[in-house]
Design a protein around this nucleic acid. Structure first.
Lengths: 190, 190
DNA sequence: AAAATTATACTAACTGGTCTATATAGGTAT
DNA sequence: ATACCTATATAGACCAGTTAGTATAATTTT
């Protein structure tokens, strides 16, 4: 595998970023966690940490969005699909609450500092939101209403992950799942 | 003013944490931004950065919660109050989108690292949520339903601030304000 | 042999934190 | 009032460790 080392670096970076954010994650830590050679860092990412971060964010969000899309396809009704999506997040989180909100910390830290990272986050978020919006449109919502609801759903998801991690209580997520289901079911379709 | 220096340190810290988070904010930067003497840092906060952070988070969230409480009191209906609260956040954010989510970055960064900071964030968040819950109870919601709605509202607020900052677009917040108003108005009261 | 990849040593800047010396108060005894 | 004393507060040099990043040599792989 030619790109194996490169991929290991990105995986380790995504993992560390999710747990502790951008600035707390050092290059040495990435090297150690990935088990890749130190010298390869700047070989594969000559532009340094910013490039690693931006690439890691892109890749992570692409994976998450495609996973969300799979969930969406498993349900006929958008309300059910979104409910399942959010519950799935809860189950993935585990009791320790060490993860969840894979790029939120990076997005906040970089929003005023690195335009490159910020835009990578913005695009990743938008793609994720579009997955939900698409499902809502398929379910009969107008394009505008779907985008509007998808935004609120996404915000609620992002927020509740922060609250879950901070309070070390995953059950909060179920609460939000119920409210989002309700919101979709009772909202007008245009 | 005897406690002037100490307060300046906390103010600067809160300000910097909101914009760039915990790890990106160095002690030197706090000293510089606050205009206080370097030697005073460890005089007022002998336990170091963690103590400064925990104190800063507490104070900041106390202020935000009391402000939210004031807004709640200006409206008879909880749906209207929450709507006004969220719109107020939008107006405070300003076009640059450099602020908003005052402790979210710190909460995410510290949730796996510093128990002291994590609990300070958790308590701050809970108090904020209680302000909203109280208003819902006053508006006729059951205690349980009020807590549940307050959580979702809080999550949506926290999340949309991240999304606004990342996309540099404050208008998203209005969208969430509308949906939260709707959610309150159409939810059953028990 | 040539190209791709990795190893190692290094830099300059910065980190959080400690240290001692010094100033500046406010109160007290003379 | 004045001299003295002590607690509070400030100044800033200093520490060891770490950071991101660079340069170049050695090693694989093709």
């Amino acid at each position: 595998m030619v790109k194996d080392t490169r991929q290991k670096i990105l995986n380790a970076t995504s993992h560390l970023f999710e747990r502790q954010g951008y600035h707390a994650t050092g290059l040495n830590e990435i090297v150690k966690e990935s088990g890749t050679p130190r010298g390869s860092l700047y070989y594969y990412f000559p532009e340094g940490k910013e490039e690693i971060a931006s690439e890691s964010v892109k890749q992570r969000m692409a994976y998450i969005s495609s996973h969300a899309d799979e969930v969406m396809q498993q349900f006929a009704e958008p309300a059910e699909a979104v409910y399942a999506l959010i519950l799935g997040i809860m189950n993935n989180m585990g009791e320790s609450c060490g993860t969840g909100a894979p790029i939120a910390a990076v997005a906040l830290e970089a929003s005023n500092t690195s335009e490159r990272i910020r835009t990578a986050c913005a695009k990743g978020y938008q793609d994720y939101q579009d997955v939900v919006a698409k499902k809502l449109i398929d379910g009969g919502f107008s394009e505008e209403k779907a985008q509007s609801l998808a935004l609120t759903i996404h915000a609620a998801i992002e927020g509740v992950m922060i609250l879950s991690r901070t309070s070390k209580n995953v059950t909060l997520i179920e609460n939000v799942a119920n409210d989002m289901k309700f919101l979709i079911e009772f909202s007008s379709k245009n």
